[in-house]
């Protein structure tokens, strides 16, 4: 929204006299991305997919009995795809829930990719033969429906032959998005939280992908515990100030005369 960019600029102009304008005009470093929360509860279309082993299955058959983690990549990527798939693989291993709590689908968005490319990608990641890791391609129209539903953007750069694209992992439960994670800092920690939720655990905590100042609570996804954070101290500041002011004003006692 345009206001989120123009507010800091206007505010900085108005407040320049009061505060040293350290960040004036700069793009916020950890700007809130609304994408993750926007995807929640989105309906995902049921499209046909061709798996690495050549079988054709419907997407709904993959989320029928357990949630499906969907991510996108393309075989020829020189950028984020392989590292991101590596993160997902490691996070899944670390969590130990694959097969029991969910299965994973890596869907190629490059129309040039074939089932053979999918096999080689699985090999490269050491996941060939893992029944809960599925690599697939789809017809262009089906692909467009899935990527459209999940707001996954990609654009071919003709100069390099590479795609400009994001990194997304969406947990689909009974055809709807239950959680979405954008790649980036804190991914592994947030993956753990998502995995706990997929096991039916209620997590009263949602870290957004930015550097929130002074949180009231933090959640440890390993132990599953919620613990108090510095923000709670700020909540106590008004009462402490009022007490200090009151005792300060009344310290001298009533004046005679």
């Amino acid at each position: 929204m345009w206001i989120s960019k123009s507010v800091p600029v206007s505010a900085a102009c108005l407040l320049a006299v009061l505060v040293a304008p350290a960040g004036v005009g700069a793009e916020p470093p950890g700007a809130v991305s609304p994408t993750e929360s926007r995807l929640l509860n989105r309906s995902v279309p049921d499209v046909p997919l061709q798996l690495a082993d050549g079988r054709t299955v419907s997407m709904s058959s993959l989320w029928q009995d357990k949630p499906l983690l969907v991510t996108f990549f393309y075989r020829n990527c020189h950028g984020i795809c392989s590292p991101f798939l590596g993160w997902v693989r490691d996070a899944v291993r670390d969590d130990g829930g694959s097969g029991r709590d969910y299965r994973i689908l890596a869907l190629s968005f490059d129309e040039e990719d074939t089932a053979a490319d999918m096999r080689s990608q699985a090999d490269a990641l050491g996941l060939a033969g893992d029944p809960d890791w599925l690599f697939a391609v789809a017809e262009p129209e089906a692909l467009a429906r899935v990527t459209g539903a999940l707001d996954f953007w990609y654009r071919l750069d003709p100069a390099t032959g590479q795609y400009d694209h994001g990194a997304l992992l969406a947990a689909v439960h009974e055809g709807r998005v239950a959680r979405a994670l954008l790649g980036g800092s804190g991914f592994v920690e947030r993956f753990r939280i998502m995995a706990r939720e997929l096991r039916g655990e209620f997590i009263p905590f949602y870290t957004v992908p930015n550097q929130t100042a002074w949180r009231c609570f933090s959640f440890d996804p390993v132990s599953g515990r919620l613990y108090m954070d510095w923000g709670l101290l700020i909540l106590g500041v008004p009462t402490l100030v009022a007490m200090a002011v009151t005792f300060g004003l009344f310290r001298r006692g009533p004046r005679r005369g």
Binding site: V7, P8, A11, A12, L15, V19, P21, A22, G23, V24, A26, E27, P28, P29, G30, A31, V32, V208, N210, Q211, T212, A213, W214, R215, C216, F217, G231, L232, I234, L235, P238
Partner: peptide
């Protein structure tokens, strides 16, 4: 102050803290 800090630095505040305050 937290609103102004966000305006100046772009660093968002904790929504729960803001609602409580």
């Amino acid at each position: 102050v937290l609103f102004y800090l966000e305006l100046l630095t772009g660093r968002p505040s904790d929504a729960l803290l803001m609602k409580n305050l």
